[in-house]
């Protein structure tokens, strides 16, 4: 599981960097994989503790989420001090950050409900219209168990997570543009 988490974090950082280059109309550069792996190995396990702790404390939650997403991006971009850059960008536009997280949570909830309804109803529709009589169709609403909920939650996360990545890439891009204009 640890290996998978690091694997995902490294690819996520590269994905964010590619979005950033797309946004800044620059050609993709070579990512220093060793540096990104080292950075994500050092930081992302902390996020598993820091984000729930920040959620309990409430006030630093939005900043913490932004910081961990930004850190991966700046490491992949080859920033000299990715931690400082991530901290600087995470502190920008707190209200916007909170609204974005609220919006993403609401979207995730609706998407989760839609996916769950689809999982439960598709076998019934298959039986009604196509005559496919399978295990899932016979289970009916017994299909709603913890495993199905976990599958629906995973699919929801696969849609919402890249959207949040894109949102934080945009925030960093606007924040960096602001810094460039000021200097």
């Amino acid at each position: 599981m640890t290996g998978l988490l690091v694997w995902k974090s490294v690819w996520q950082a590269i994905f964010e960097a590619r979005l950033y280059w797309q946004l800044s109309l620059s050609h993709p550069r070579r990512v220093n994989i060793v540096r990104v792996v080292a950075m994500q190995c050092a930081l992302q396990p902390l996020s598993l503790l820091a984000i729930p702790a920040a959620l309990v404390l409430t006030i630093p939650f939005a900043w913490t989420v932004a910081f961990f997403r930004n850190a991966g991006l700046f490491a992949a971009l080859g920033e000299a001090d990715p931690i400082a850059a991530a901290r600087r960008q995470a502190g920008l536009w707190s209200r916007q950050n909170w609204y974005l997280l609220g919006l993403a949570s609401f979207a995730a909830l609706l998407l989760f409900a839609n996916i769950l309804i689809s999982i439960v109803l598709l076998p019934q529709l298959g039986r009604s219209f196509l005559g496919i009589e399978g295990e899932f169709a016979r289970l009916g609403f017994g299909l709603v168990n913890l495993t199905t909920l976990a599958v629906a939650a995973s699919i929801t996360w696969l849609f919402i997570d890249p959207l949040l990545d894109a949102v934080y890439v945009l925030r960093c891009f606007h924040g960096e543009s602001l810094a460039t204009v000021k200097t």
Binding site: W7, F15, T147, D161
Partner: peptide
């Protein structure tokens, strides 16, 4: 290619978590 970059990381983790859960 960019979307594939994301999915290359996220799908194995999602499957791993689901496998561990079940």
């Amino acid at each position: 290619a960019t979307i594939a970059t994301y999915l290359a990381g996220a799908i194995p983790l999602a499957l791993g978590v689901l496998f561990f859960w079940t």
